[in-house]
Amino acid sequence: MDYKIIATILTNTNNARDALDAAIALATRMDAHLDIHIVSINQNSMAYDLSGMATPVVATQTKDAIAERDKLESWLQDRMQPEVVRWSVQAAMVQSLVLGNYLAEKLRFCDLVVLGRPYQDDPEMAGLVENCMFIAGRPVLMIPKGGSAPEPRARVVLGWNDGTEALSATRAALPFLRTASETEICIIDPPRHGPDQADPGGGLAQFLTRHGARPVVNVSPETKGSVAEMLLQCAQDHDAGLIVSGAYGHSRLREAVFGGTTRSLLENADIPILMDR
C-alpha cells in the first residue's frame, strides 16, 4: 500500500524547493493527496512590555513573519500551477513555543512528512523535524539540498538494532521497501544475548519478505568507525537511494535534541533519510 496523504512544511523560500519537489513527485507517483503547510514561525511573539503591549522589536518581527508568509503563498501558487497532483494549502503564523502542538494537530492524519534535511543552511529545519517526529508522531522523509525523492527501484539501507524506533521506521518505510530492488538490513555489533542472537535480522527479513520486499541481511562488528559512519558507508557501497533509521533524542518531554548516531546521519548523509521514533 502506498502513502495516501503526504505533507510538507514551508517556512521560507530558501528551504521550500527540494522538499516540495520531492513531495510532489511522491504524491504524483502514489496518487496521494499533498497537504502543504506554510508556517511562519514567530520566535519572540511572547515578549511584551509592562503595559501588556508588544514591544517594537516583536511588532517588527511579526510584520516580517506575515510578509514572509504572504511571499510563500504567492510563490507556491506559481509553483503549483502546472502540477496535476491533488493538493491543498494552509497558512499560519505560529509562536515557536507552541509549534509542536500546532504540527501535532495539523499532521495527525497524514502518512508521511517530507522536509529538507536538517543541519544544512536552515536553522529552523532541525526544530521542524524534531517536532514532527517526537511531538506530532509522524515519520519524516528528509531530502538533502539538491536532492530528490527516492526512485521506485532504488536500493534501501535499513539500520536495524531490534529497537522500537527501528521497527517504527521500518513500518513507516514499507511503501519504499516494497518497490526497492533490494533492502540491505544493516546490523552493526548485534547483542550477544537476545531473541535474535542465533539469527540476527532473521525475523525482520521474514517480515519484509511477507510484505513484498527483497531483504538481504548484513551483520558487521563495530570496528570500522561509528554506527553512523558504517551506515553511510553501507549506503555508498550499495549505491543506495534511501536510508531508513530509527530516530533517537535526548529528551521526550520537550523538544528533542538529536544526538549520537541520529545527528551524525542527519549531518552527513547526501541521500534521503526516512526516520521515525
Rank of each mutant, 00 (worst) to 15 (best):
R79C: 01
T62D: 01
G241K: 11
A247S: 09
D237L: 08
N218V: 03
G241C: 04
G147H: 06
L141F: 01
M125Y: 01
E267W: 09
A92M: 01
N161L: 04
V85T: 13
Q95E: 11
T11Q: 12
T60R: 10
A198E: 00
V257M: 14
E130H: 12
E182Q: 14
D49S: 12
P152Q: 11
P150G: 05
D21S: 13
S245N: 02
A205S: 06
I41T: 07
A235N: 08
T179K: 03
P215W: 02
A126C: 05
L34F: 05
D237N: 10
Q236Y: 12
A92Q: 03
S220V: 00
V113M: 07
L72A: 08
S88Y: 12
R254K: 13
H193Q: 14
Q77D: 11
M133K: 06
Q197A: 10
L204R: 00
A67Y: 11
G260H: 05
T55Q: 03
G127C: 12
I143S: 09
E255R: 15
A240S: 07
Q206K: 01
A173Q: 12
G127E: 15
T60K: 11
I66E: 05
M1P: 05
Q90H: 13
I6T: 12
A235L: 09
E68A: 09
H211Y: 07
R153A: 08
G127Y: 13
M53F: 13
I9L: 15
G146A: 10
R214Q: 07
I24P: 11
G194E: 09
S251F: 09
M230P: 01
T60Q: 09
L103D: 04
R86M: 14
P272I: 05
T55V: 06
T262R: 06
L115Q: 08
R178H: 10
V257D: 09
N14W: 14
G201S: 11
M46R: 02
D78Q: 05
P200A: 01
M133F: 14
D49P: 07
A198Q: 06
K145G: 10
Y248G: 10
R263F: 04
D237C: 05
A67V: 04
T55A: 04
S251R: 15
G212I: 11
Q90C: 10
A126M: 04
A247Y: 02
P82I: 06
P139H: 10
T164L: 04
S88L: 10
E182I: 15
M80R: 00
P191R: 15
M53V: 12
A154Y: 06
G127I: 10
N15D: 00
A65D: 00
P56F: 15
Y119V: 06
I135F: 12
P195K: 02
G159I: 02
L107P: 06
L34W: 06
A256W: 07
I66N: 08
G246R: 07
L97C: 11
G260L: 07
Q236A: 13
G52N: 00
I243W: 03
R252M: 05
Q77H: 06
E267P: 09
K224F: 08
A256K: 13
L99H: 00
R171A: 14
V217P: 09
P215A: 04
E165H: 02
A67G: 08
L231A: 08
Q236H: 14
A104T: 07
M30H: 14
H250L: 07
L242F: 05
N14K: 13
Y248P: 06
Q236R: 15
G127P: 09
V217R: 08
D237Q: 11
